[in-house]
């Protein structure tokens, strides 16, 4: 089994949880004047770590470090009160992000089951 799989999944879970924080912050500040919506540059973080992994396999664990990755301002139409949170977009992103997290957990569980059966069935 690929031993990079678990750190990779852990990193992705951390990154997804981190993004949920940004989205939660946007929903809470939906009516705050002057607030600019936040996001985690998920794809950049991921593609950067994948690119590093391509040159050096041990770099695959990189996304595990991004649990504290920086928030960036995400674009959106600025309302008269200076706030640019788009409720519809935030809610869909929130749902998508939640589903992505559950998918990752499901996948991780599947990997663990495979590992467990390898351990248990191997000696028979």
């Amino acid at each position: 089994m690929d031993n990079q799989m678990f750190p990779m999944l852990e990193g992705l879970l951390n990154l997804t949880a981190r993004r949920q924080q940004a989205l939660a912050s946007n929903i809470a500040n939906i009516d705050t004047p002057g607030y600019k919506s936040l996001d985690v540059p998920f794809q950049q973080e991921l593609s950067m770590s994948l690119r590093m992994a391509a040159t050096e396999p041990s770099h695959m664990i990189q996304p595990a470090l991004t649990a504290a990755s920086a928030f960036v301002e995400s674009g959106g139409e600025i309302k008269p009160n200076g706030n640019n949170v788009d409720l519809d977009r935030q809610m869909t992103e929130l749902t998508k992000n939640g589903l992505q997290y559950i998918t990752l957990v499901q996948y991780l569980n599947q990997k663990l089951r495979t590992l467990r059966s390898s351990i248990n069935e191997g000696g028979r």
Partner: peptide
Amino acid sequence: ANISAVNIIKTMITRTLEIGR
């Protein structure tokens, strides 16, 4: 909207607790 967000996070946490079961 805030309630929905809390519910989604609640599901995420519940699933996290089920990792490895």
